[in-house]
Design a protein around this nucleic acid. Sequence first.
DNA 1: CAAACGTATTGACAACCATCGATGCATGTC
DNA 2: GACATGCATCGATGGTTGTCAATACGTTTG
Lengths: 102, 102
Amino acid sequence: MTESCCAPLSDATLSDDEAVLLAGWLKALADPVRLRLVNIVATSGEACACDFPAALGKSQPTISHHLSQLVKAGILDREQRGKWAWFRLNNDRLKEVTAALS
Amino acid sequence: MTESCCAPLSDATLSDDEAVLLAGWLKALADPVRLRLVNIVATSGEACACDFPAALGKSQPTISHHLSQLVKAGILDREQRGKWAWFRLNNDRLKEVTAALS
DNA sequence: CAAACGTATTGACAACCATCGATGCATGTC
DNA sequence: GACATGCATCGATGGTTGTCAATACGTTTG
């Protein structure tokens, strides 16, 4: 009947809502394509979307889909310059993620 | 034809294989139930599986499934004590994850 | 050994996701 | 204005995932 076998657990320091939020950020990062996108943007300072399909060997719609997920999660910032879309890393969000895992 | 519009990108510092590996670890963490499991284990030092279904409001098979994913990803270590299963945090793996995101 | 109990596994199902071709929308160019 | 170009959206599809009831497995206890 799932009865406790031991001393009670410490109180959890992570609420349900916080867990959902953090899981969302981690889910945005938990894909090889998106990790490589983040890595390229981070090491380049900024990058425009036009380079990604060739760099990662994925179709343009696929790249666009991944980029929008990263922007939605607040991990990348998007800026439109003429007809090109440029991306930068949001370091604050990334620090927020690593801080929650420490 | 998706032609480059700008200076070439910096060389990526994350290989495809590394990205797949890191994505696997992040995927193991990217779920609210699993994050709360990790949090409980981390704050308690160690915990036995018998407490989790009540603490998280999930069925025993569901908890067992999540725990096995965390163990498989090397985030939790499992130890059998009689008929109870005890879990501890693998801090090295967690540090490896946060280091890769910094 | 037999019964009880904690946990893992199986099977099933709905929800979600990564991917791509086709198409639409906006911006810049002639 | 007409055309070309970069990117987003749509529709479809195959694969993955979270969940639980039922069941099997292993350990302890009587």
